[in-house]
Amino acid sequence: MTVSTGGSANLGAYRVAERRERWLLQSLVVPGLALIGLIALAPIGWLFWMSVQGSSGFTLDHYQRLLDESYLRTLKTTFELSILVTVLSIALGYPLAYLISQARPRLAALLMLLVLFPVWTSLLVRCYAWLVLLQRRGVVNSWLQDMGIIDAPLKLMHNFTGTTIGMLHIMLPFMILPLYASMRSIDRDYMRAAANLGASPVRAFWQVFVPLSLPGLFAGIIIVFVLCLGFYVTPALLGGGRVYMWSMQIERNVTYYADWGAASALGVVLLALTLGILWAVGRLIGFDRIVGGK
């Protein structure tokens, strides 16, 4: 490489060098982008394409079929269950996350371990564990009957209730983790300031702590709700065959009818709904707040 000695002529060389460096750095992302494009975007594109393919080219038949009563019912069930599980996971997860965030470090670590423990256990194992506990002749019913608290066994499994319990158990960590992260980042001085300004502990909690924990709460809601929308195993195992989820319709279309078109259309609808919800929530509270911006 030649060194230019003429003062300002260097400028061009610097620019070239700078540009080359920038290109080099940016090219580092190419393998990552290619992989994401291949394993994430390509299948989605394929999904869209298949959802509008009929035996004779382009068709919207697959979407039209979704207006069928049984699909609409499934959609309703899917949303009802997802909303219910999300609401319950807030009701249980918020106090738990609060407790952990306020506990002393060692206790907090222990509690966190207990929260995370189920995540490391197989989904199937957890579902069967609930079955053993809550079915008609399960541990809980036998115990309640032996104690004379109930005469006939409670119907806790093989229905909507059982599915809700099972899904709630699986979803709870996904609510607690972002909540906990959000709560931990709330400076103790905020609560002190609120108290100093005259807020009782209860008011300080509702007026200062809760609003400041909202980013974590929204993140939790989105994660739990979106995961619920696509749930399959738990409703299939604990629902007694009654709880129809959108994902089951997809599975049914593929395995029984070999109808990739219909299954793709179902997938596209679920994806669109999910994105729609994300978009709406993002518009409502600002997406950067959820993913950890300001």
């Binding site: 009563e69 019912r73 499934t74 069930t77 065959g241 009654r242 129809y244 049914r252 029984y256």
Partner: peptide, 10 residues
């Protein structure tokens, strides 16, 4: 299957 699904969901 379709009719059965509708039957179960009702």
């Amino acid at each position: 299957v379709k009719r059965f699904d509708a039957f179960l969901q009702r």
